[in-house]
Structure formats: C-alpha cells, structure tokens
Computed example of a mutant assay.
Amino acid sequence: MVNLTIKDISRIAGVGVSTVSRVLNDHPDVKDETRKKVLEVIKEVNYIPNNSARNLKRNETNTIGVLIKGIHNTFFSKMINSIEEKIAEKNYSMILHYNKGRSSDFKVAVQFIKEKKLKGLICLGGEFDDVDNDELKSLNIPVVLASTNIPQHIDKRFFSSVVIENEKESFNAVNYLCELGHKRIGIITTGERDKSVGQLRLEGYKRSLFKNNIEYDINLTEIGEYTFESGFNAMNRILNKNLEIDAIFVTTDIMAIGAAKAILSRGLKIPEDISIIGFDGLEYSKYFHPAITTISQPAEEIGKKSIKIIFDLIKNKKSHKHIVLKTELLKRESCMKK
C-alpha cells in the first residue's frame, strides 16, 4: 500500500482517527490492546506519517492549541473530540491547556501561543473583555473564540468566532416556562461575573420575565458554578426561602441535574411541584429521571466549524469568519403546564 493516511489506518484497525493519533504521539490514555492493534496495522502496511520529519521531536509548527476555561465544564468534551479528529486527519498535533485560575484568559492564550509556537488556537469559553486589539493583531496566527461572549470592542478583522445567541436562547427557555403558565420562576446561574455566558443567560431570563409581565425577584436568583454540587446547593438555598417557586431555569445542564436532585430529595415532584429546564443539551440530562428539558447546543458542530476555520486560514490566509449557530429546545419530562 502507498499514500495511506491516518484515516486509512483507523479504518483498517477499526478504531477512531483520534485513537490512531494518540498512538502515534505515544499518549498514555490508550488501552494496551488497542495500542497493540494499531501498531500492528502500522507495521503491516509500512505506514509513515506525513509529518515524519518530527521523528524524535514534534514539529511544533504543526501544532494546534485548544485553550479551555476551567476544568469542570463537561460540555466542552464533545467539542474537543470533534476538533481532535479533524486535527489528526491533517496530521497535525493538538495540545490542550486549561486555564484553571483567575488569570486573564487572553494573557494565558498569548503565553500558550508563545511557549508552544502554535500554528493556530481555539479558545473554548473564557472572558476576553481585556483584549487589546493591537496585541490581538500581533499574534499572527489564526485564533477562534468558541462558545463564549464576544465583547463589542474587539476588532473582528483579527480573530474568528463560533457562538450561539446565549441571551436570546435563555429568553426562549424562560418564555417556554411562562407559556406553560408558570409565574414564580427562579434561576440558578453562573452570574454576572461570568461574562463568557452567565451574564447573557441572566439577561435573557430577566427580559423574558419582563415580556411576560412578571416582576424580577432577586430572592429567586442563586449563583452556582459548573458542577453538580453547586446546582444542588443553590437549589437548596432557594427552597429554604419558602418562596412558593413553581419553576426553575438553570443555565447549565450540570447544575440543572444537581438542582433536580435537591428538589427530589425534599420529597417534591418534578414537574408536578416544580418544573425545571436546563441549558447545553448534555447526555446526562437525557438520562436523568425525569429527563430534563434543555436548550441543546450543537457542540460537535461548534468544534468542527472552529477547526475548519483554523485550517482554512492556515492554508489560504482568507478573512476571519464569525459564525452564529442555532440551538434547539428539547422538550422532555421535567416541564408541565401549570
């Protein structure tokens, strides 16, 4: 065989492209049996990677970076998988970096690019209010901001983006609860400090209440993080106030599952006592009982479009793109007419 690609190896070995990539890059997170199978196929067909010049040293100019905000948000996992597969098909390498602290996401991105000599960078989540246009322009590599809020002051000629309309879709989620007849609608959000999406989703909630002639009550608002536990604790704080709440909008599915657990642990029923709606469309929400109604984001499509933009820019140096994707309201068992 000649001119085989990494995709051919994955097909012959019966594994994913990303798995072959991990084997070629000697990643530890591959089962011994799978690694052995892939290496046998590579040896049998005498496969030589196109970027074999890296031999003992990875060709750092063929590296795409993925910068991820935080470590808890499992919503990014599907995006990462779809990005990794496309990177592997191009015989590039991928480096993940998590901004775990409170450091500026943009400054972390700049340092990441310099240290790893990246060919392109995708930022999943994060806050970029502190971005300086001159500094952004000087990066000289393709940068895509995905699944975050794009500040108005940033010059769109210097970066690309793949996002959804967080404020609008949160409005739609709460409006759905209003259409079902709910009046005492609480919210668990990551809050105004979370300028990536939390602030926008809170604004959508408030706008929907206003549109439906419902007064905003700050007592029905609690702040959480991207964890089951924080959703559970935030919901308990709301329930402890005895405010006769009849519905709750939770701005991430992870927190929504924690909130649902808190409701059920009090002996209350979902949706008979309290309807609940989440946001993201995670698999977890589908298999929770009762299945949680949610705004589903196209996670894989966000990943695929982000990496396509990167490679288009690397290849042709075309203009940056700014893509807005649609979401879907998945109506499940956790909401009912009041």
Rank of each mutant, 00 (worst) to 15 (best):
residue 135 E to A: 06
residue 75 F to C: 00
residue 92 Y to H: 04
residue 119 K to S: 15
residue 296 S to V: 06
residue 66 V to A: 08
residue 273 D to V: 05
residue 221 T to G: 00
residue 51 N to Q: 09
residue 288 F to W: 03
residue 38 V to T: 09
residue 244 E to W: 04
residue 147 S to L: 10
residue 244 E to L: 07
residue 330 L to P: 03
residue 105 D to Y: 09
residue 310 I to F: 02
residue 326 K to S: 09
residue 125 G to Y: 14
residue 283 E to V: 10
residue 241 K to T: 07
residue 216 Y to K: 12
residue 311 F to A: 02
residue 109 A to D: 09
residue 148 T to A: 02
residue 263 I to T: 08
residue 131 V to L: 03
residue 122 I to T: 09
residue 210 F to S: 14
residue 300 E to C: 04
residue 118 L to D: 06
residue 277 I to Q: 10
residue 87 I to D: 00
residue 60 E to P: 00
residue 42 I to D: 06
residue 208 S to Q: 03
residue 98 Y to R: 03
residue 59 N to T: 04
residue 13 A to G: 07
residue 301 E to Y: 00
residue 31 K to S: 13
residue 231 G to R: 07
residue 144 V to T: 05
residue 284 Y to T: 10
residue 81 N to T: 13
residue 229 E to D: 14
residue 36 K to Y: 05
residue 322 H to A: 03
residue 46 N to R: 15
residue 116 K to L: 05
residue 79 M to S: 05
residue 272 E to V: 02
residue 125 G to W: 15
residue 122 I to H: 14
residue 267 G to A: 11
residue 186 G to I: 13
residue 207 R to H: 12
residue 210 F to N: 14
residue 15 V to F: 07
residue 123 C to G: 11
residue 315 K to A: 10
residue 256 A to Q: 04
residue 332 R to S: 06
residue 248 I to F: 06
residue 218 I to G: 00
residue 37 K to I: 14
residue 201 R to F: 04
residue 215 E to N: 12
residue 191 G to R: 14
residue 284 Y to E: 10
residue 83 I to Y: 00
residue 302 I to F: 02
residue 293 T to Y: 05
residue 37 K to C: 01
residue 215 E to I: 10
residue 283 E to K: 12
residue 321 K to I: 07
residue 312 D to N: 15
residue 74 T to L: 09
residue 268 L to D: 05
residue 103 S to Q: 12
residue 264 L to H: 07
residue 264 L to G: 09
residue 106 F to Q: 01
residue 172 N to C: 05
residue 183 K to M: 05
residue 266 R to Q: 10
residue 325 L to S: 02
residue 161 S to D: 01
residue 30 V to L: 02
residue 117 K to I: 00
residue 207 R to E: 15
residue 220 L to K: 14
residue 206 K to E: 15
residue 23 V to H: 01
residue 24 L to M: 11
residue 211 K to H: 13
residue 287 Y to W: 14
residue 184 R to A: 14
residue 196 S to E: 11
residue 335 C to D: 04
residue 32 D to R: 13
residue 265 S to W: 01
residue 262 A to D: 12
residue 316 N to Q: 06
residue 78 K to V: 09
residue 21 S to W: 08
residue 88 A to Y: 08
residue 55 N to H: 13
residue 304 K to P: 03
residue 176 Y to G: 02
residue 58 R to I: 13
residue 253 D to S: 04
residue 110 V to D: 15
residue 292 I to S: 08
residue 92 Y to W: 09
residue 194 D to L: 04
residue 240 N to P: 07
residue 275 S to Y: 13
residue 144 V to W: 09
residue 167 E to C: 11
residue 141 I to D: 00
residue 120 G to I: 09
residue 40 E to M: 02
residue 230 S to N: 06
residue 34 T to E: 13
residue 216 Y to M: 12
residue 222 E to S: 03
residue 323 I to F: 08
residue 59 N to R: 13
residue 207 R to Y: 06
residue 33 E to Y: 14
residue 26 D to Y: 05
residue 199 Q to L: 13
residue 202 L to K: 11
residue 7 K to V: 12
residue 39 L to T: 14
residue 143 V to I: 15
residue 257 I to H: 13
residue 287 Y to H: 08
residue 313 L to F: 03
residue 337 K to Q: 15
residue 285 S to P: 04
residue 136 L to E: 00
residue 119 K to T: 10
residue 204 G to K: 00
residue 135 E to F: 10
residue 300 E to W: 01
residue 74 T to R: 10
residue 145 L to F: 15
residue 188 I to M: 11
residue 138 S to Y: 04
residue 304 K to D: 03
